[in-house]
Write a protein that binds this DNA or RNA. Structure first.
Length: 292
DNA sequence: TTCCAGGTCATAG
DNA sequence: CTATGACATGGA
């Protein structure tokens, strides 16, 4: 296994910064499962076939990668929303009249939705049911190590659907997926027949995209909403999970609402960037910043 | 030891 | 359409 060769550290030029206090929540807050704190002040993650490092040098967020291509730089800029498209949408959220949302925005300034591949988000959230974030990250890591392709050292790509479909019971068992193994393999079997599924799905309007995703085994309303939001960048998608139920029932007074009703409220109340609002509320609630 | 986790699915009313 | 359990695994 070759050892990694790194590009020199360079500033990650973001139109709107990710403050140091937001970075851990940004990288390991439950939307991406491929980042981990490698040392104090150095995060490492895998994006596609590239291993990426991030650190703060003083007030400057810097990156370095195993991939020195221009394409990787473009990928990074997109991944971290370097142009700040989301920040402009955050400005249009109803934070002036919504004190709960206001608290959430203040708790993690600069937080954004990472623009991951649909493939990555689907694998991650197929593993997510009834699991804590830390355990999801472990499962995804095991999948990469067991069924992915080696990059260098102990870094691996995520497995293809083909690799997952062909995996042995022993291999899947070693990933400690529990009953989610059937979700992954079932979805893999449906997707190996349509290798261009990402582009096909991308053409669909959001409502149809969510419905189509739900035809895959292990993908219900919540996972579909997450993949739609994180993997396809549909900011209006509003995943309702246990934390969102907590927030909406307790802080917004919506007791007795079904998940479907809560989703409709979220979309109506937060509008075109409901999913971005959701991410702020989720992060803040999960880390006890909303006082609920 | 018991409980619960960024839910989904099958089944029953 | 809504309500209820089972489901694998591991950490608190």
């Amino acid at each position: 296994m070759p050892s990694l060769r790194w590009t020199t550290w360079r500033p990650l030029a973001l139109q709107y910064p990710i403050p140091a206090l937001t970075l851990p929540e940004q990288l390991d807050g439950g939307q991406a499962f491929r980042w981990r704190l490698y040392q104090e002040n150095e995060w490492r993650g895998v994006i596609g076939r590239a291993v990426v490092r991030l650190r703060y040098q003083g007030a400057t967020l810097e990156w370095s990668s195993s991939d020195d291509s221009v394409a990787l730089i473009e990928k990074l800029n997109d991944y971290f929303d370097a142009k700040g498209a989301q920040a402009k949408l955050v400005e249009k959220l109803p934070w002036q009249s919504d004190t709960v949302l206001y608290q959430a925005l203040k708790a993690y300034p600069g937080l954004r939705i990472l623009r991951q591949d649909p493939h990555e988000t689907l694998i991650g959230f197929l593993c997510s049911s009834n699991k804590r974030i830390q355990q999801i990250r472990t499962m995804v890591s095991s999948l990469a190590q067991t069924l992915g392709e080696p990059i260098a050292e102990d870094y691996y790509t995520l497995p293809s659907w083909s690799a997952i479909a062909q995996a042995s019971a022993v291999q899947l068992k070693s990933c400690a997926l529990g009953y989610r193994a059937n979700f992954l393999q079932g979805t893999a079997q449906k997707l190996i027949d349509r290798p261009d599924w990402e582009n096909e799905f991308r053409q669909l309007p959001t409502r149809e995209l969510i419905e189509t995703l739900q035809t895959l085994p292990g993908v219900g309303p919540k996972v579909a909403a997450c993949v739609t939001l994180f993997g396809f960048g549909r900011w209006e998608s509003f995943p309702v999970d246990t934390w969102m139920v907590q927030v909406l029932t307790q802080a917004y007074g919506l007791q007795g609402y079904s998940a479907k009703q809560l989703e409709m409220f979220g979309r109506a109340h937060f509008g075109e960037a409901a999913g971005i609002a959701q991410q702020y509320l989720f992060a803040s609630a999960r880390t006890g910043r909303l006082g609920i």
